[in-house]
Each structure stands twice: as C-alpha cells, then as structure tokens.
Design a protein around this nucleic acid. Structure first.
Length: 203
DNA sequence: AAGTTGCA
DNA sequence: AAGC
C-alpha cells in the first residue's frame, strides 16, 4: 500500500491504507483488552444456525442474536457490562464518521480463516442517519456491497489490514457481507484470521 | 466461479 | 437467515 486512497462502492466509502502498522498494532492491543473483559461468543441466528463469525463488543451496547432475534443489549451474554470503547477508536470515529454524536457500540467481529458473513443490512439502530464505521485488522477479506434491496447487483473489494470503511448516507442501508478471507495474508496476526471493528450509534 | 434467489 |  502506498498512499491512502478513497473508493466509493454504492455509497460505502472505503479508505484504503488509513492506518499505518503502528496504529494497527496499537488497536490490536486495545482489542485484546476488550476480549479479556468480554470474551468472544458464537451467536446463533433466529433460526438457530450458528454464525461462523465470533463476536464481542465494547461501549454502552453490544449487538447480539439468538432464537429471540437480533438486538442491542447492555450486557455480554455472561451478564457483565461491556467494557468502555478505547480512546483510540473514539479518535478514529471523530476523524472519519462526520457524526456529531458519540458511538455507543464497538462490535468486535472475529473471523477465523474460514469464516464469512452473508449479505445483510445493518438496520437494528434507531437513527439510520448515523453512520457505521468499520476497521479491518489482519487477513484480507473480500467485502461485497450491494444496494438497498437484496436483489440489487453487488460489487466486491478486497479489504486489507488498516483499511477503514464508512457506511453512511446512501450507503448506510447497503447490503454488505464478507465472502471469504485470504488466509495468512497479513503478518499482524501470526496465526491468521481477521478482526473487524464497527462503531455505531445505537439509540 | 461468482452472483442471485428462495427458504420457513 | 448476519445461513444455507
């Protein structure tokens, strides 16, 4: 990666090379601290299918799913409150989100090398005028982005460690997902895999 | 192989 | 169904 570059996919803005190696290492340490307080969980969808992506969160709310459905809640499934969102992430939110509100949730999504996430919309938040900011760490991931209807055509882009994507404006309700990882493509995590951090305003 | 659609 |  040379200079940071901005790409638009159906209203989703992707800033390639936004974070240098030092910032990535530092964020990874922050994530490790979150996961010590709030361990990764394998959620099931409302139909009872386990997701391949393991999840945790920081902030006032975390997103969870089980047979009762999708929702934000104030506690880890173990019953403990989520740890605070690290200051490093609040700074990135201020730099990239163009929002006048503070994020209330930082989802931590862990992708093992064979994990994926199907095409979906983020629409469990109360104020859809507020953007969602996504940070990639670790292995490259093929990120697929469609339109606001499931049947809309999709395009894909490979996200690398240190890339930032913003789902805002026209892209806020774009269908999106992760098809596959390029296992072992990043030296950030020696054992492979990917971490995606998403900052959101929930209420 | 990749991109859509249908499912309950 | 954020899965198959």
């Amino acid at each position: 990666m040379t200079l940071p570059q901005e790409i638009d996919l159906n209203g989703v803005r992707v800033y390639q090379g936004a974070l240098d190696r030092y910032a990535q290492v530092s964020l990874l340490e922050d994530v490790r601290a979150i996961l010590r307080a709030a361990p990764l969980v394998r959620h099931v969808t409302p139909s009872g299918k386990p997701m391949s992506v393991r999840m945790s969160a920081a902030g006032d709310f975390g997103w969870v799913t089980d047979r009762s459905g999708y929702r934000y809640q104030r506690h880890h499934p173990s019953g403990t409150p989520w740890p605070p969102i690290p200051a490093s992430l609040l700074i990135l939110w201020n730099k990239y989100s163009k929002s006048d509100r503070a994020p209330e949730c930082c989802l931590v999504n862990w992708y093992a090398p064979d994990a994926k996430m199907g095409l979906h919309q983020d629409n469990d938040e109360a104020d859809l005028a507020q953007p969602v900011l996504s940070i990639s760490l670790g292995d490259d991931a093929r990120f697929r982005v469609g339109g606001t209807e499931r049947s809309d055509p999709t395009r894909s882009i490979w996200l690398s460690s240190g890339d930032i994507a913003v789902l805002g404006g026209a892209g806020r309700l774009a269908y999106h997902g992760v098809d596959k990882l390029r296992a072992g493509s990043s030296s950030l995590m020696p054992n492979g895999g990917r971490i995606n951090l998403t900052l959101r305003v929930v209420t």
